[in-house]
Structure formats: structure tokens, C-alpha cells
């Protein structure tokens, strides 16, 4: 087959994809960059006004700061739990396949179920947790009022730990067993081997887990929307929730577009950092 015919065939096969990505990715992104420069009426040009407004908007700043706290908390706790589980389940323990599958269930469960279930469990009046606590004579909790953000972090870790575990398991299986055998012959004990071999050689996986974790937590919307509605007050109104409110409650699409462009910038920087570090790790 001639090169020319192959090129034609290739582009013919790609036509649906070209149309799809042009119309439903690149066109909207371009549109978003432009809309961000206009007022809520979509007609008056305000230049970078929406962006400078965002930096001076206390609601947006608040949402950004609690999103960072949420992302950091989820990352630290989630990584620790996921790594711990992966290390345990990387051993030849009977029943490990069952444990691996079970721990993954929440990850593939609808966020509606996860959110509603935990809202019910933690409800101070009708929740099963307080009923059990009171039955054994302990005071009830009101975590969704007293520690709302930490509670959302906890639920996020609950639903994501299995996935983090799977990523770490893949990383662990990529470490040649030769290294462990050599270290053992040299007299290194299990703890020493963990800190001198496992942790350093898992660094690329840990980085990958951290960055995809950050990217997804920065966009978290559904969980607080369902569990707390962003409350109490605006204690769990994460950045994406604020964006949603600006767009669909305030109907200010210009401002919301500017906010989404800022989100895109942060995610782009993180993704590119991931690519660069990934390249260096592979080199």
C-alpha cells in the first residue's frame, strides 16, 4: 500500500475522533477562555476583570484554601493507607485476592451511594453510629458539624483507598526481587530493606499517586454536594462547588468561566510536572 493511501485511510478512520475532540474538547476550551473575558451578560468585555475579581473574592479564596486543605489531608492519609494495604497484600497471605477485591468496592460505588450512606451513618439523631455509641454508653458524635472538612476527607479516603492500593501494588510488583535477595545476603533485615529498597524504588509510583490524587481532589464536587451541601455555612464549599454555585445559582457564566480557566491552569501545571518527573524517572 502506498504511503499516501495509508495516510488517507488513517485520517479517514480518525475522522469521528477529530470531530469529537474538536467539538467537545478544544472548541469548549477555547470558548471558555473567551467567555472568561466577558461580564455575566456575555456581551460586555471586561478583559481580565473576572480574574482579578477572583483573586479578591473572599468566597473564592476561602473555597480555594479549604480545597488545598482537603487535597492535602486526602493525599497524606490516603497515600499512607493505600501504601500500607499494598505492602501487606503484596505478601503471600492466604485470602489476599478476596481482600484486594473487597477493598476496591467503594471505588466503583456511585458517589451518591457513598455520600448518602455516610450522611445517614453519621447523622446525629438517626445515624447508626450514634445509636451504637449510645447503646454502649458513649457520647454521640456530631462530626459533620464539628469537623465537616475532616469528615469529608475521611469519606474520600474510605472510597479511594482501594484504588491507591492497586496502584501501589503495581509499583511493588515492578521492583525486581533480585534487589531484595541481594540485600538479604548482605544481611539487611526486613525494615532496612523496606526503607532502603521499597520506599526509594516506589518513588515514581508515589509521585504518580500524589499527582493524580491532587488533580482529582482539586475537582471534587459531588461528595460535599451530597453529604453537606457545602455546609455548615461554607465549611465544605470546595472550589468546584463554588464554581457550580457561581454558574448555576448566580447565573454568572463569565465569572464561572474565569474560575474554570484558573482550575485548568492549576491542573495543567500539575499534569506537566507529572510528565516531566515521569520522564526523568524513566530515563
Amino acid at each position: 500500500m502506498t504511503r499516501r493511501r495509508q495516510a488517507l485511510t488513517a485520517w479517514l478512520f480518525l475522522t469521528p475522533a477529530v470531530l469529537f475532540f474538536a467539538l467537545l474538547f478544544f472548541l469548549p476550551i477555547g470558548n471558555q477562555l473567551l467567555t472568561g473575558l466577558y461580564d455575566s451578560d456575555g456581551v460586555s468585555f471586561v478583559g481580565l476583570g473576572n480574574f482579578s475579581r477572583a483573586f479578591g473574592d473572599p468566597e473564592v479564596l476561602h473555597s480555594f484554601l479549604i480545597t488545598l486543605a482537603y487535597a492535602a489531608g486526602t493525599l497524606v492519609v490516603g497515600t499512607a493507607v493505600g501504601l500500607g494495604l499494598a505492602v501487606i497484600l503484596n505478601q503471600a497471605l492466604p485470602g489476599r485476592t478476596l481482600f484486594r477485591s473487597v477493598l476496591l468496592i467503594p471505588y466503583l460505588t456511585s458517589v451518591s451511594i457513598v455520600g448518602l450512606l455516610w450522611r445517614n451513618i453519621l447523622d446525629p439523631q438517626v445515624g447508626i453510629l450514634n445509636r451504637l455509641l449510645e447503646a454502649i454508653g458513649l457520647p454521640g458524635q456530631t462530626w459533620l458539624s464539628t469537623h465537616p472538612l475532616a469528615t469529608i476527607v475521611g469519606i474520600t479516603v474510605w472510597s479511594g483507598a482501594g484504588y491507591t492500593m492497586v496502584l501501589f501494588l503495581a509499583g511493588l510488583q515492578g521492583i525486581p526481587s533480585l534487589y531484595y535477595e541481594a540485600a538479604r545476603i548482605d544481611g539487611a533485615g526486613p525494615w532496612r530493606r523496606f526503607f532502603a529498597i521499597t520506599i526509594p524504588l516506589l518513588a515514581p509510583t508515589t509521585l504518580f499517586v500524589s499527582i493524580i490524587g491532587l488533580i482529582s481532589t482539586l475537582q471534587q464536587f459531588a461528595l460535599p454536594y451530597i453529604v453537606t451541601g457545602g455546609g455548615p455555612g461554607n465549611a465544605t464549599s470546595l472550589y468546584a462547588h463554588r464554581l457550580f454555585i457561581v454558574a448555576f445559582n448566580d447565573n454568572d457564566f463569565g465569572y464561572a468561566s474565569a474560575l474554570s480557566v484558573l482550575l485548568l491552569l492549576v491542573v495543567l501545571v500539575l499534569s506537566l510536572a507529572q510528565l516531566r518527573i515521569g520522564d526523568r524517572a524513566n530515563a
Binding site: 471558555q32 482539586l218 482550575l263 491542573v267
Partner: peptide, 13 residues
């Protein structure tokens, strides 16, 4: 397109 948050496509779409 892997890097594009859904929020960025959502409003124009």
C-alpha cells in the same frame, strides 16, 4: 485531553 477537568468543558457544552 486527559489533563482537561470536566469543569472546563461543562459550561460551554
Amino acid at each position: 485531553t486527559l489533563m482537561v477537568p470536566f469543569f472546563v468543558r461543562m459550561l460551554p457544552i
